[in-house]
Design a protein around this nucleic acid. Structure first.
Length: 442
RNA sequence: UCCAGCGAAGCCGAAUGGUCAGGCCGCCGGCUGUUAACCGGCCCUUCGAAGGUUCGAUUCCUUCCGCUGGAGCCA
């Protein structure tokens, strides 16, 4: 048994490959069986002169996505240099398909494919995206591991309904209302006081009825938090982190990105080249502008109505990000737009010590974070101002009562990052089984 | 929640107030080098649901359902 990815190490040997029939072509005395095993795809050539008539006929009857076992000689592809094929000696059917495989090798609509998501994951493009996702997540973990962070995962069930920002899913927790987490951040602040540098990585949930290319009801977020770090340090951490992740993907997943390049934007054939250049550019430091500078930029670039106090919508984010050739950091938003826990800028208390990182090419906000309020009295005032139930935050206030400390962190949305790096037009393909406003299955 | 667009075979999809073109898949046959193979043949649908207008509706109107993505909100 050899995995298809490692066939190059077995040239000249007779090996057995197990997998599924991806596609099949025939040319009289030759059958070309494309076999998929999860590690790759190889073409098995069944030549009439090499096998029994029964086997030759049987090979032609195997249906798409039947599981099969092929024994054959590994040799260089008859037409394509640098790839390998199997000169088949034996083909065994492990299990035939019980009915016709629904995803034929032609075009399909998204809704149909999403209904068959459990099968759609077998196709080349989805395979490439999931491998990039895997590489991104591995890079995330490696980065924090190599920089002495401790993994402190946050709970999924939370008792309090609000940071005051987004809508949460409510569940019944043994008779008490409980909510699916929207962020692990508050828990990371406790973690930072215990371990110094921590991060969590897990699913988060938003119940907003958002139906856009950027939204999922369930998505994965990685959230580092560091004790005795200020906003400036937070920005440095974010840009080093993103640079590391992107360069790792470029190092390890070139083949998969090439698969994704193939059917890109027919109206703009240069798009993928520009996209790859943009990824190569993701090196710290990133350009940094203040919120006020961003408003100026918008006013001068097609958004004359933009004014201080507005938050940025999808269009605004696209306009800003298109002005730069790499991710851009926007910092110091008005406190009114931000959650209660942000520290205020000592030079202008109306501003939060926060920052967002916008991905290039209009992919939107992929990182949001900043420095947290460490003063007990000011934090209590902020909770009151946002009309949040103080009792629910007593444990959080304890972090300021028992040795308060400046600290900062951020959250990165994995799916938006995958979507950006893969150059996709929608986040729904970046997670194996997406949960969206109108989709809970499969 | 609001706005817009869409809904035709297992899938993709043109046209149309007079009864669904073409293609893919499948099946049969042909081809020793195919790459979403190709060539020939066969097979499958009455157009999301209900109601209305009409001699006649897949086509026009109303409501509903489903899908799509944009606003709001957000990562």
């Amino acid at each position: 048994m050899v995995s298809i990815a490692k066939l190059a190490e077995h040239v000249g040997e007779t090996v057995t490959v197990r997998g599924w029939l991806y596609n099949k072509r025939s040319s009289g005395k030759l059958h070309f069986l494309e076999v998929r095993d999860g590690s790759g795809i190889v073409q098995a050539v069944v030549f009439k002169g090499n096998v029994s008539p029964e086997l030759f006929a049987a090979a032609d009857r195997i249906q798409q996505e039947s599981s099969i076992e092929v024994e054959g000689l590994v040799k260089e592809h008859g037409k394509i240099k640098g790839t390998y094929e199997l000169d088949a000696k034996d083909v065994k059917l492990v299990a035939a398909t019980a009915r016709e495989y629904p995803i034929s090798p032609k075009e399909h609509g998204t809704d149909f494919l999403m209904d068959h998501r459990h099968l759609w994951l077998r196709s080349k493009r989805q395979h490439a995206i999931m491998r990039v996702r895997h590489a991104i997540i591995k890079a995330v973990r490696d980065f924090f591991d190599e920089n002495d962070f401790t993994l402190v995962d946050a709970p999924v069930f939370t008792p309090n309904a609000c940071e005051g920002t987004s809508t949460l899913f409510q569940t019944d927790y043994h008779g008490e209302p409980a909510y699916l987490t929207q962020s692990g951040q508050l828990y990371m602040e406790a973690g930072a006081a215990a371990f110094g540098k921590v991060y969590c990585f897990g699913p988060t949930f938003r119940a907003e009825k958002s139906k856009t290319r950027r939204h999922l009801a369930e998505f994965w977020m990685v959230e580092p938090e560091v004790a005795f770090m200020d906003l400036a340090g937070d920005m440095v951490l974010a840009e080093q982190f993103l640079s590391f992740v992107v360069s790792r993907v470029l190092e390890t997943r070139r083949k998969e990105l090439d698969v994704l390049a193939s059917d890109k934007r027919p109206d703009d054939p240069e798009w993928w080249t520009r996209h790859m250049t943009m990824l190569e550019n993701v090196k710290a430091p990133f350009p940094r502008i203040t919120y006020h500078e961003a408003i100026d930029l918008l006013q001068k670039n097609g958004h004359p109505d933009a004014k201080v106090g507005d938050d940025f919508g999808g269009d605004e984010e696209t306009t800003i990000s298109k002005k730069f050739d790499r991710p851009v950091i926007i910092h110091r938003y008005p406190m009114d737009l931000k959650a209660f826990y942000f520290a205020r800028d000592p030079n202008d208390p109306k501003l939060a010590l926060n920052m967002d990182v916008l991905a290039p090419e209009g992919y939107g906000e992929i990182i949001g974070g900043g420095q947290r309020e460490s003063d007990l009295a000011r934090l209590e005032a902020a909770i009151a101002e946002h009309r949040l139930p103080k009792e629910a935050f007593e444990w959080y206030l304890d972090l300021r009562r028992y040795g308060s400390f400046p600290h900062a962190g951020f959250g990165l949305g994995i799916e938006r990052t995958v979507s950006w790096i893969c150059g996709l037009s929608h986040v729904r393909e970046t997670i194996p089984f997406p949960r969206m406003l109108n989709r809970l299955a499969p």
